[in-house]
Design a protein around this nucleic acid. Structure first.
Lengths: 157, 157
DNA sequence: TATGAAAGCGCGAATGG
DNA sequence: CCATTCGCGCTTTCATA
């Protein structure tokens, strides 16, 4: 993972369908060189895939919310992610430190659907919920910066 | 926005670099038909762009956190998003209902960087912060479902 | 909005510096 | 690890219905 790879990742992170020809131009390498690097980044899992960024309003899912969940029985085994995976309204699931155990990000069509979803979450995972409704999203999915502060210098890793 | 468009969006949402040839095969349309539909979806903003999904661990940004912010002076004009936009560690910014005003999602290299970032956020936007550290992420960026419950029936829009 | 054909270019593999 | 070459496949546009 060196500087030119970070650059490629940055470019693909802001333009996921860039052609190898474009990437070559913008990095100063030949097409086959970028090609090899991109394939290697994919194989090593640095690039995990590609996705279209969609306007959820236009798709009829204008309501976004963060739902924090906490087990009702703290002694029960914690398999909330598996129990919730079938609910396609849940876009992301993060295990977190703090008072609650997971934060879910969900997209639904209406308050009514949110209510239904909350009940499904509570019964499927045996949890209580705390919901924060998103009013608007100034920005999201910003591309990774080409160079953060400094790549971790000398770490054994 | 009809059914075949949702299907295309779903496909591009799980495979952002799918060729038009593949999309045509999977939808049963001709190549140029999908081509037109995809371009129209892009023009109308239903598809806002494409991005590579990256492994932040591999990029040297293994620490993810949600930071909720609240203005110190509630009377001051609320322009936090503009004031925070230059901080590239902030991946997303959502305006939310509830006790706090925004939820930020950030990616940093270390606890030390998180501390620095928190100070920058507080001074740049005049806010207090509450931070929730992400321990792991069972899933994220799940593709939009082809058909939610039902597309909003008869809305004037 | 759909299709099919034609032109151009990008992709991907193989070879060699 | 990078550059060059080349055949095939994909993208893109246009004419047409």
């Amino acid at each position: 993972m060196e500087d030119i790879d970070r650059r490629i990742v940055g470019l693909l992170s802001s333009e996921g369908r860039s052609s190898f020809t474009d990437l070559a131009r913008e990095t100063g390498l030949s097409v086959s060189a970028v090609h090899q690097r991109v394939r290697r980044l994919e194989r090593r899992g640095v690039i995990r895939g590609y996705t279209a960024l969609v306007d959820h309003d236009a798709l009829g899912l204008p309501l976004t919310a963060f739902i924090s969940i906490k087990p009702i029985d703290p002694a029960a085994p914690d398999d909330a992610p598996e129990r919730l995976a079938h609910l396609t309204a849940i876009e992301a699931c993060h295990s977190v430190a703090g008072d609650e155990s997971y934060i879910l990000k969900v997209r639904v069509a209406s308050p009514g659907e949110l209510e239904t979803l909350l009940q499904e979450i509570r019964t499927a995972a045996g949890v209580s919920t705390r919901t924060t409704v998103v009013l608007s999203t100034p920005f999201e999915h910003r591309p990774v910066a080409a160079a953060p502060g400094e790549p971790p210098a000398a770490e054994v890793s």
